[in-house]
Computed example of a mutant assay.
Amino acid sequence: MKVEFFVTGSEQDCGIATYTTTLENALSVEYARTPLKLRSLDVFHYVVQSVRAGLTDADVVHVQHEYDIYGPKSVASWLVFPLLWLLTTLRGRPLVVTFHSAWGEETVAPPVESVKWAYLWLNNRLLTAVTDHAIFLSEDTREVFERTAPLSSVEVLPHGVPTDLYPMPQADAKRELGVSPNRPLVAEPGFVRPQKGYHLFVDVAERVDDVTFLVGGGIHEGTYEDYLADLRERCGDRVGITGVLDDEAFHALFNAMDVALLPYETVTQSGILNWCLAYEVPVVGTDVEQFADLRDDHGFPVVFPQDDPDAGAVAVRELLDDPTPVLETMRRYRDQHGMDAVASAHADLYRSLVGARG
Rank of each mutant, 00 (worst) to 15 (best):
D209K: 08
F145S: 07
H159W: 13
D335M: 00
D297F: 07
C235Y: 10
S138M: 13
P305D: 07
S352N: 15
S77H: 06
E318M: 03
Q306E: 15
V29S: 10
R317E: 13
S138E: 13
M257T: 06
D296H: 00
E265L: 15
R33D: 00
T34G: 08
S10R: 14
Y31V: 11
L200Q: 09
A26T: 05
H220V: 11
P169N: 02
V259L: 01
H220D: 04
G92D: 04
A311P: 00
F250I: 01
D296I: 03
K196Y: 07
D237F: 06
T141C: 15
E225A: 15
D247N: 14
G338M: 03
A356S: 15
R183F: 07
L353C: 10
D258T: 02
L87Q: 11
T20W: 07
D42V: 02
D287S: 15
R317S: 13
L95S: 06
F81Q: 05
H65I: 05
Y350W: 10
E66T: 10
A17V: 10
W103L: 15
V63G: 08
T268R: 12
V3G: 02
M257R: 02
V48F: 10
F5Y: 12
I69D: 05
W85V: 03
A58V: 14
E143F: 13
T148E: 11
Q269T: 12
E146F: 09
R331M: 01
K2P: 00
G54T: 08
H133G: 08
P111M: 11
G92Q: 04
G160S: 12
P194E: 10
F191V: 14
F191Y: 15
T107P: 00
L165Y: 09
L245R: 02
E146I: 09
L120A: 13
T8C: 15
I272Q: 08
A252G: 12
T223I: 11
K73T: 07
R317F: 00
T18W: 00
D237W: 06
